[in-house]
Simulated assay, not measured.
Amino acid sequence: MRQWLIIGLVLLLNGCGISIQGSQYEQQSPKFNLMEFFNGEMKGWGIVQDRSGNVIQQFTLDLSGEMSDDSTLMLSETFRYQLGQGVQRRQWVITKQLDNSFQGNADDIIGNANGKVFGSAATWQYEMNLPVAGSTYHVTFDDWMWQFDDGAVINRSYIKKFGLVFAEVTLFFQKNNDCTKAKGAGESC
């Protein structure tokens, strides 16, 4: 009896995970060129939801990416959280690999972030110590991005602890093609 209870619990827990198959996006367009998309200025808007679907955080995001060579992107992120955390910054160094994958590093990321492009989609996994309400949690992020056109990407992040999703982030990125003109006129993007 105990054996069947353990098997049932394992099957139940496996059903709580997210399992997106990148291969289903291989033939979809537009083809996501991650390095090209994040090269330049853009804006982002996002929400964080708990396991019940309740929105527990809202934020905006300013991004600025610059290619340092044909395979390395320097990406600066500035998060402005609505609740509690204020402004936070992250500087990524993202390197394109020969096999259409990419690898990234940032100060608050544990080890390497690893990703791969599948047609119109890209996935990105990494671990970090996530500060939440005065505590810190070692979590895994499983990000999926879908490109709509040259100027728009939607990102869905599944934040996991012990292999279980405990929060989800939905984020919309939009390239700011007029940003250079605005900066030239003394305005911010």
Rank of each mutant, 00 (worst) to 15 (best):
R2N: 13
Q3K: 13
Q3W: 14
L5H: 02
I6L: 09
L12T: 10
N14P: 01
G17K: 15
S19Y: 07
Q27W: 10
Q27P: 01
Q28P: 02
E36T: 14
G40L: 02
W45S: 12
G46H: 10
D50C: 08
G53Y: 08
V55C: 04
I56G: 09
Q57P: 03
Q57M: 04
F59A: 00
G65N: 03
E66I: 10
S68F: 06
D69C: 00
R80H: 06
Q85Y: 11
G86M: 01
V87P: 06
Q88P: 00
R89K: 15
W92F: 12
K96G: 11
Q97N: 15
L98K: 15
L98N: 11
G104N: 07
N105T: 14
I110N: 02
A113V: 01
A113I: 04
G115V: 00
G115E: 04
K116C: 01
G119A: 04
A121P: 04
V132E: 02
A133K: 15
T136R: 05
H138R: 02
V139C: 00
T140E: 06
F141L: 07
F141W: 10
D142F: 02
D142P: 07
W144L: 01
W146L: 15
F148C: 05
F148D: 06
D150A: 15
V153S: 03
K161P: 00
K161A: 12
F162R: 00
F162C: 00
V165E: 03
F166I: 10
F166E: 01
V169P: 01
T170S: 09
L171N: 09
A185Y: 06
S188A: 12
